[in-house]
Computed example of a mutant assay.
Amino acid sequence: MGAQQVRDGFEELYGAAPEGVWAAPGRVNLIGEHTDYNDGFVMPFALPHTAIAAVSRREDDVLRLHSADIDAGVVEVTALEPGSDTDWTAYPAGVVWALREAGHPVRGADIHLSSTVPSGAGLSSSAALEVVVALALNDLYELGLQRWQLARLCQRAENVYVGAPTGIMDQTASACCEEGHALFLDTRDLSQKQIPFDLTSEGLRLLVVDTQVKHAHSEGEYGKRRAGCEEGAAILGVTALRDVPYADLPEALSRIDDEEIRRLVKHVVTEDERVERVVTLMTTGADAREIGPVLVEGHASLRDDFRISCPELDLVVDSSLSAGALGARMTGGGFGGSAIVLAEESDVASITKTIEEAFATAGFTAPRVFEAVPAPGARRLA
C-alpha cells in the first residue's frame, strides 16, 4: 500500500485528511549480529519495504490506532503502561508512552498504518512501526529530536513497554540509513559512518531469503542470550563484551568456566572483528566478493556458538553455497526469520531455484526470495 492509499484510508476512517504521511523502512543486517546490546559494531542497511503512517494530532488524550493490514485500537495516552498491551498496537503506543515519559508534550493522535515489511522475518518490522510513529510525532509536535534520539526512544518503547530486550540497531537503521549505503554503527556512542554499498556496479546481488519461520524476540531465548553476555562481561570485569580485544580472546575465554557463556563471548568478540573486517574491505577498494567468506564465518558462529540458527536457515546457507553463492548467513535475531546470500548476478536464478528445491525436498514452507538494495531511511512523504 502506497502513501496515497494510506492517506485515503485515513480520511475514510477519521473523516478528515491527515496532517502528513511518513515512511520508515525495515532493515537487513549485512554483518554484526547480537553485538548491539554488547556495545559493539553493526552494519545494517535499509530495505525498500516500509511502514507508512498517516497521522494527525488530537486536542485530547485519545490515541486511535488503525492498521490497513490488521485491525484497530483506541486508548487514552494517560493510561499507557508497560505490559498493558500484547497486540501489535503496543509498538506505536509504546512510542507515545516513551515520548511522554521523557517529558515531551505529546497528546493524542489519530494514526493509520500500513506496512510492506514482512512480519516475523527478522527484518525489523516492529522497529519500522516505532520509527515511523516517532518521526511523525516529532514533526507534528515540533519536538526537535534528532534521528538518533528518536531511535533511543523507540528502543526504550520496545524494551520497557513491549518487553522485548532488543538492542539499538534496528531502530537506528530505520531512522538513519541512507540510500545506496550501509550504516557502520558503533552502538556504544551511536557514532555513524555511511559506507557506499553498490553491489550492482560489481555485477553482484544480495538476496534476502525469508524462511517463513516466525520468531518472537519477547520470548525467552533472546533474553537468555543477552543475560549470558552480560554475565560474561561481569566475569571478565568489563562494561560490555565490546571491551574485550579480539587479540585477547583466548586468554579471556580461559577465565570463563561456563561453556555456554564462553560460546556467547566468543561469538560477540569475533563478530565485532568481522564487522571491522568488512568495513575495511568496503572502504579500501577491495573486491566486494571478499565479503562472502566473512558472511559464512558469521553464520557458523551464530549457528555453533550463539546457537540461534534453525534447520531452515542452515538449509538456505548450505544450498546457496552449493549452488555457487559467494557467501551466506542468517540475519536478524535468529530462531527463524531470514538469511542473506551474496551472489554473482548471473547466478541469482540458479541459486534461487536450488534454495526453493531444497526447501521443497525437506518439506519446508516455500521461502520468499527477493533482492536487497540499500534504500532511504525514515522520511516524510507528504
Rank of each mutant, 00 (worst) to 15 (best):
A240T: 12
A127G: 09
D36G: 03
A382E: 14
L204G: 02
K266F: 01
R277E: 15
V28Q: 09
A227G: 10
V279T: 10
D258E: 15
I291Y: 11
T352S: 14
D60W: 09
I340R: 09
G334R: 11
I340D: 11
Q212L: 13
A233Q: 10
T50C: 13
D36R: 03
D39N: 13
T172K: 07
A3D: 13
A102V: 04
V133S: 02
T35Y: 02
D318P: 03
G73E: 15
V6M: 06
P48K: 02
D87L: 13
E273W: 11
V265E: 02
S350T: 15
A366Q: 15
L13G: 00
H34A: 07
E59P: 03
R225M: 01
T172A: 06
E344N: 14
G332K: 09
G163M: 04
V77I: 14
V369C: 13
E11C: 14
Y222R: 13
K266P: 05
V341Q: 05
A93Y: 04
A366G: 10
D305M: 03
A121K: 02
A240C: 12
A358H: 07
G336D: 07
G228H: 05
A79Q: 15
C176R: 11
L13Y: 12
V42N: 03
V244A: 10
T35V: 01
V133P: 08
P48C: 10
G40P: 01
M330P: 10
V213P: 13
L65H: 01
Q149W: 11
E259Q: 13
A286Q: 09
G336N: 08
A372L: 05
R57F: 00
S346L: 08
L236F: 07
A93V: 08
F359T: 02
L326F: 07
R255S: 13
C154Y: 04
L63G: 08
A360I: 04
F364I: 02
A366I: 03
T239M: 12
L249E: 12
G377V: 00
I111R: 05
T187Y: 00
E273D: 13
A339L: 03
T78Y: 05
W97L: 03
L153N: 01
R262A: 08
E12F: 07
P376L: 05
C310P: 10
T280W: 09
H34R: 11
L190K: 04
G336V: 01
E202S: 15
R277N: 11
S126Y: 00
R57T: 06
S114N: 12
L253P: 04
R262W: 00
P367F: 07
R147G: 09
R242P: 07
L135I: 10
E290P: 02
R188W: 05
L140E: 05
L113S: 02
F197N: 09
T166R: 02
V369W: 00
G26S: 07
F41N: 03
R303F: 06
R156Q: 11
S201L: 14
D36C: 01
W97V: 06
V95T: 11
P245S: 08
G103Y: 07
Y91W: 08
S201N: 11
A79L: 10
K214T: 12
L123E: 08
R262Y: 03
A127Y: 06
W88L: 13
L249Q: 03
Q192K: 12
F306L: 12
R289Y: 03
A233Y: 07
L135K: 15
P105D: 15
L321A: 11
T86D: 14
I111C: 06
